[in-house]
């Protein structure tokens, strides 16, 4: 499996790739294409386009698409467009709410945080989606991921309340949509520690 950033509808090309090199190369093509397309778009954003920009841009995109930092594969990023549309509003809303809650807590003369560490068993399959979720947790109301373990995430909660697990469950479902993944059957609610 190769690591790449891909925005493609869910045609699972990797399933076609068994062992043969050519097949794997062909299977990697749409991924490489997607990578090149995304990087070319970013190049356009950086430079604003124009002929002289693309003289540099074509080699730049090629080099950027082919160089890897040598950190192995993080797994496939296969994003679904519909999932993105479902994910974005939820993310924006939660990010706003998270910032508001922190702001109120910081500004309020008497209210103090009441933090607690909880474990949240992840239902997402291992891979980039889990890391994405762990990072996302830092941006939504009252949660901060501290450790990603095999079983789940250890989370520092700013103010202990029942709404945290509900938010996390909703968020996890939206992340699964975004990555076009199926969640594992429910592993029960987050256990207090």
């Amino acid at each position: 499996m190769r690591q790449f950033i891909a925005f493609e509808p869910c045609i699972d090309m990797t399933r076609l790739a068994d062992n043969t090199g050519i097949r794997r190369f062909i299977a990697g093509l749409p991924a490489l294409g997607a990578r090149v397309a995304v990087l070319a778009a970013i190049w356009w954003v950086l430079t604003g386009g124009g002929a002289s920009a693309w003289v540099w841009g074509v080699p730049a995109v090629m080099v950027a698409a082919s160089l890897r930092p040598g950190l192995g594969s993080g797994g496939v990023w296969r994003l679904s467009l519909m999932g993105l549309l479902r994910f974005l509003p939820v993310f924006v809303w939660y990010n706003l709410r998270g910032a508001m809650e922190v702001a109120v807590l910081a500004m309020h003369p008497r209210r103090r945080p009441d933090p607690v560490l909880i474990g949240y068993p992840l239902r997402l399959p291992p891979g980039p989606a889990r890391v994405f979720m762990a990072n996302l947790i830092n941006l939504v109301p009252g949660t901060l991921s501290t450790r990603l373990t095999v079983r789940g995430i250890e989370i520092h909660v700013l103010t202990a309340s029942a709404s945290v697990t509900r938010i996390l469950t909703i968020l996890e479902r939206r992340v699964a949509d975004l990555f076009a993944l199926q969640l594992a059957p429910s592993a029960g609610l987050g256990s207090q520690r």
Binding site: P59, L71, G72, V131, A134
Partner: peptide, 27 residues
């Protein structure tokens, strides 16, 4: 932690791209 390699894998192509960008800009 797994988050760090993930971040670098994401950022690395952008580092390469912006290196080229600054070279081009220098003109």
């Amino acid at each position: 932690a797994p988050a760090l390699p993930a971040l670098v894998r994401l950022l690395f192509p952008l580092f390469v791209l912006s290196t080229f960008y600054l070279l081009w800009r220098g003109g």
